[in-house]
Design a protein around this nucleic acid. Structure first.
Length: 276
DNA sequence: CTCATGACCTGACGGC
DNA sequence: TGCCGTCAGGTCATGA
């Protein structure tokens, strides 16, 4: 499930492999991933475009095209973006194929079709609303002071801290896997309320956010079931997971059994001894 | 306003 | 074998 480290890994791949290429042809095999646009309009608009850059905001992939336009790609849970030679067999559930002028293909596949590709003009309203409402990037726009201020702003909330970590409007890029892993690393139970966190808890939470997300990005993300990077390779962080999907297994720190509960409608894993 | 829940979609897995 | 229910999780819409 692509979260910040996985999306960042894909964007680095795009910068290396597809930026500078021209899109010579587009096959739209399923138009419903195009977020409200017809396949023919999309094709006409994108054919011939030069890819001028690639970036990321939270879990959104931004592929910049010439003519002040961008493709906003969201992979949700099972989506993938891969770059490969045209001879490579199509994976099942491949919905859009961009043929590039070097003979390679940029392919968007998504088993569950929750993901989407949206073409927006620079300053386009649709992109703007989603991106403007997003909280800060935890790895480059969030100092310890900034994070402390953010926690102060939700001091009276009755929502558990895990629910806040998953809230893209509060902080960008964290999903269910890293939410659980960050809280384990910080030694904080996921159901704690923000106002109840001590000064020390807050400090550790900031440290853990940074450490876990950086380490996972360094391992090119976590592959639990579906995720692959632009080259189709699995991420290496799964073997570093401490609590996610380890229900009933012994905690790697203390041996206590990892517990699973439900918080914010998400399965939530934690160690009842290490996390307080 | 705050917060919880359902819908979207498919595949994997367990029970019978 | 095959059928059914459950679960997986990101985000938006809905409603209490």
């Amino acid at each position: 499930m692509p979260e910040l480290p996985e999306v960042e890994t894909i964007v680095r791949g795009l910068k290396k492999s597809v930026v500078g290429r021209r899109i010579s042809e587009v096959d739209v095999r399923r138009a419903d991933v195009l977020a409200g646009e017809t396949a023919s309009a999309f094709r006409v608009a994108v054919c011939g475009a030069r890819i001028t850059g690639a970036g990321r905001r939270g879990k959104m992939i931004i592929i910049e095209l010439d003519g002040e336009r961008s493709l906003i790609v969201h992979l949700r849970m099972t989506g993938s973006l891969t770059y490969c030679p045209s001879e490579t067999p199509l994976l099942p559930h491949t919905h859009v194929v961009f043929h590039l002028d070097d003979g390679g293909e940029l392919r968007f596949a998504d088993t569950r079709r929750f993901g989407s590709i949206r073409l927006v003009g620079l300053g386009g309203r649709e992109a703007a609303s989603a991106i403007l409402n997003m909280g800060p990037e935890p790895l480059d726009k969030m100092s310890a002071e900034k994070f402390a201020d953010m926690l102060t702003s939700i001091n009276r909330s009755r929502r558990p801290i895990k629910s806040w970590l998953l809230d893209q409007a509060w902080i960008a890029g964290i999903g269910n896997i890293y939410g659980d892993e960050i809280l384990f690393h910080a030694g904080i139970r996921p159901d704690r309320l923000p106002g109840g966190l001590s000064r020390d808890d807050r400090h550790r939470l900031h440290k853990s956010l940074t450490k876990v997300l950086r380490a996972a990005t360094g391992s090119r993300g976590t592959t639990f079931s579906d995720y692959v990077d632009l080259a189709g390779e699995r991420g290496g962080y799964a073997r570093h997971l401490r609590v996610y999907q380890r229900t009933g297994m012994p905690c790697l720190e203390c041996g206590e059994k990892i517990v699973r509960t439900k918080i914010a409608c998400r399965s939530t894993h934690y160690c009842p001894r290490c996390q307080r």
